[in-house]
Amino acid sequence: MAVIDQFQPLDRERDLKLHPTHVIGHYGVFKRDGRVFLQIDTLGSADRAKPNSQSQTFQLTSESAKALWEILGREFNLSA
């Protein structure tokens, strides 16, 4: 599990490829010490040794959520 504080672009020369596994993202919002966090969990695919067990977790702060919002808007041509 990790709290994402900021985003940085990957080196464009790096080979990016689509992963074959598709999962559902489960999310929750909680407050700690007056701050709001968004947590996203994914469960392992049916092909894993422990299917449907928690696989990945990451948390966004309000600042990193805003940064991600801006990235998504720019890269997917979205508007509010």
Rank of each mutant, 00 (worst) to 15 (best):
G73L: 00
T61N: 04
G28L: 13
F7A: 02
M1F: 09
H22P: 01
G25M: 09
N77S: 15
E13C: 04
K50N: 08
L72G: 04
L60F: 10
W69R: 15
A2G: 08
R32G: 03
F58Q: 01
S55I: 10
K31V: 13
L72F: 05
F7N: 03
Q54G: 09
Q54K: 11
L68C: 00
Q56M: 11
L10D: 10
F37G: 06
E13H: 11
L38I: 12
A67Y: 02
V3F: 07
A65P: 06
S55Y: 08
R32I: 14
R32M: 10
K66S: 12
S53W: 01
N77V: 14
F58D: 01
R12M: 04
E13D: 15
V36Y: 03
L10R: 15
D5A: 07
G28P: 01
R12F: 01
P51E: 03
G25A: 12
T61L: 02
F58E: 02
T42E: 01
E70R: 07
I40N: 07
H19Q: 11
L68P: 00
L43R: 07
F7V: 02
F58R: 02
S53Y: 03
Q54M: 13
R32F: 00
K66Y: 02
L43H: 03
K31C: 10
S64R: 02
Q8T: 12
L43Q: 06
A80H: 09
S62A: 13
G73A: 08
N52Y: 05
N52K: 13
K17A: 13
K17S: 09
R74L: 04
V23K: 01
Y27A: 15
D41P: 11
K50E: 05
Y27G: 10
Q8H: 08
Q8Y: 01
A46S: 06
T57G: 10
D33K: 13
Q8P: 00
K66P: 00
P9M: 01
F37V: 06
E70W: 09
K66I: 05
D41R: 15
Q8M: 06
